[in-house]
Nucleic acid binder design. Structure first.
Lengths: 189, 189, 189, 189
DNA sequence: GATGAATGAGGCTTCATTCAT
DNA sequence: CATGAATGAAGCCTCATTCAT
């Protein structure tokens, strides 16, 4: 009963992500959002009570995806696991950037937003501990250059994600290539 | 003698940079800017006609600094030059991020902004050609792993700049460390 | 320096009171308010950060007036004091109605509003204890009909304030007349 | 058999009255109304074409009740009749307050609302003339203090209705008490 | 030149009302 | 009939910019 929905919650979040990435958190406007959806701006409020909730929900969903994929990784071989993890992060590359906006959200405005962000925070901790676990093993097993501080190694690894893929190499190969550069360097062997 | 000058053009640009980096381009507001200056908000208009001009001028100044330092580098040894270049980019690390905002500026609003951005664009080309020149030589001279496409090597090099320096290692050492990881990788040798 | 003010804070509160009384709390709109002031609607925000603060400030001012006048009353003769108190309440008749809106104000929105309302609350207690003090004495001194419960007597006294003055009798006489009716009744003596 | 009826017209008007009294005319919102009814908000439009009509119908119904009760009063003894009239007005105390909103309704929007308000207006005149008739007789028959202007006496009588019944005395006794205070005053006899 | 105040355009959000199922 | 969803008008508030002192 009632009319057919103009757009689904999922479509809404898809566009939210798009607008967020294109305009940044402060540039995220409902006008921009509704322009890329079929209905009126006010229809958005059928799903979320305010801007903050939309952004928080978007982040939560993104985080859920990453978390699921990351936790599905087989950690038997730590170096393989790292390679797979890089795959995951590259597939959901934007999520890294989205996360950066998390602390800008005004939680006072909305309990729902606060709740979603709580989840994001927790998941963040989970991901971080997975990463640290793997790197600790990598170091123990002697895969890493001991003359380089571990935090620096981790930092560069994480930062690989943002490297612009100018040649549009398909993600799996691109991931392998980045991994190779990270581990082996770009210099002549 | 007239009224004391409220703040200098240079102070204005310093704070512009700070606010831009903290809040992003869309979050850049004159109220935030004037809060970190001694005078009134309206005084800003003594120097620049509108928001766009301020941001453009800020970018131009940042670019001038980098350009000057980059062009002072001795290019005799290309690998040394690259290491020095990384020094320069890290010293002015923010400039990389600032540049990302360049295309968001609405040039229609102001000729002065358009003019400044023209300069930035030009300088960008200059820097890029310096980089490409050096990388071409590095490859020719056999310093680089030929199995990796050059654009990927360059991309990773550029992206190093954004690596978070979690341990707050002083910039010169941090630069050396990043260079070492880039060239030699993080794996056991 | 700077431009001349379009309207003073006091004028703003005057009109606030007028609009509140005419349209009620839920009907209080900034558009209506600014229509009765010389400047633009947004100018209001030079004085108060939001609607709630305006209303709260209006109430506080009204309460201050009443409080000052009420506390200046000589309480030597309690029945005289009650007559004077009625004068005061009639002069500021609207304040009784304004107070009714106090609990509707959303304090969560503004600390300043909450603070003003705190004052109003306190003053309310002060006024109430003055009233109870006087009535207690009136009863002790045998001025009141003991067959009527005191709260009923007080209730009717307070309610006199709202009696519409259809003949537009000047306030002092009107006050005396109401007092006379209250104390002596309207029946033949 | 079709769908079960969501709520009756009468339930609708009951809640209308409740919401009106709680939130005032300007605060009367269909969302608040439907929250206290079993069906959907849009179902309201099965009964009335718009907000104004609902409020007008509510007032009309309230007025009809009062009118019926008031016209049933035996006017043989004018002072008894006044006491009975006070009973009636107290039983339907809210109606006095509701009436105050009548002039705020925008009649331009709806013929039906205008029609209902016309009725209310007429009934108001009827009630008023009853009151004036009784008071004229009361004065003629020497029941009232001739030193007090009749309009003032009527005003206070009418205003009694709003006196807050803090002790929650049952309406019939409360009515007698108010009548007694009005006629005989609260002072020592 | 420097300022504080004024302002209108534009964004967020709510709400009466309409529509399609 | 009953409903849930859709919608635009309208209210609040912010912010870049202009103005008068």
């Amino acid at each position: 009963m009632g009319r057919k929905q103009a757009f689904t919650r999922s479509e809404l979040l898809d566009q939210t992500k798009r607008v967020l990435l294109e305009y940044g958190y402060e540039g995220f406007q409902l006008k921009l959002l509704s322009k890329s959806l079929v209905g009126a701006r006010s229809t958005i409020y059928q799903y979320y009570a305010n801007k903050e909730e939309i952004v928080a929900a978007c982040m939560k969903r993104s985080m859920e995806n990453v978390l699921q994929k990351a936790s599905a990784i087989d950690e038997t071989e730590c170096m393989d696991a790292l390679q797979h993890l890089l795959d995951v992060y590259l597939e959901e590359a934007d999520f890294h950037q989205l996360l950066g906006y998390a602390h800008k959200i005004n939680k006072a405005n909305s309990a729902a937003a606060a709740h979603d962000l709580e989840f994001v925070e927790q998941a963040h901790v989970t991901l971080k501990s997975q990463l640290e676990r793997l790197f600790a093993r990598a170091q123990e097993e002697g895969h890493l250059n001991t003359s380089i501080p571990l935090p620096a190694i981790i930092g560069v690894f994480f930062n690989l994600i943002e490297t612009p893929n100018m040649m549009n190499i398909p993600t799996p190969q691109w991931s392998k290539l980045l991994y190779q550069m990270w581990l082996g360097g770009v210099g002549r062997r």
